[in-house]
Simulated scan of single mutants.
Amino acid sequence: MKQTYLDCLAALGVGGAHPGGLKLSKKLLEKENLQPEMTVLDLGCGTGQTAAYIARKYKCRVTALDVDPTMLEKCRQRMDEEALSVEIVRGDAENLPFKDRTFDLVLAESVIAFVDMEKAISECRRVLRDEGCLLAIEISKYGILHPEEEKMIMDFYGFTELPTEKRWHEKLYAGGFTQVESEMAKIDFFTPDFENAPDFRISEVVDPACFDMLQEHEYLTKSYQEELSYHIFRCK
Rank of each mutant, 00 (worst) to 15 (best):
A10K: 07
C45D: 01
K26S: 04
R78P: 05
E30I: 02
E37H: 15
A93N: 06
V40Y: 00
A17Y: 10
C75K: 03
K26G: 03
L72M: 10
N33E: 09
Y58V: 02
P19R: 01
T70M: 10
G15W: 00
A93I: 10
L65A: 09
K74A: 04
E73Y: 14
N33Y: 11
G44E: 07
R56Y: 14
Q77F: 03
M38K: 12
A93P: 05
A51L: 04
L41D: 09
C75Y: 02
T47S: 10
E73N: 12
G13N: 10
R76E: 13
K23V: 08
E32S: 02
M71K: 05
A11K: 06
D92M: 00
G13P: 08
V40G: 00
E82T: 11
P69M: 01
V62W: 13
P36D: 09
G48Y: 09
V67L: 14
L12P: 05
G46A: 08
L65R: 10
C75W: 01
L72F: 10
Y58E: 00
V62D: 13
K31D: 05
E37V: 00
E30M: 13
K27G: 13
D80I: 14
V89A: 06
L41W: 12
P69V: 06
Q35L: 13
E81A: 15
R90S: 11
L22A: 04
K23H: 15
D68Y: 04
M38L: 06
L29E: 08
L72H: 10
L34C: 08
H18D: 06
L84V: 04
V86I: 15
E82I: 09
E32I: 05
A64N: 09
V67F: 13
L24T: 12
I88G: 01
A93F: 12
A52K: 07
K74M: 05
A64Q: 08
S25K: 14
R56S: 15
G20T: 09
M71E: 03
C75E: 04
I88T: 13
T39P: 00
L22T: 03
T63M: 00
H18G: 01
G16Y: 04
Q77A: 14
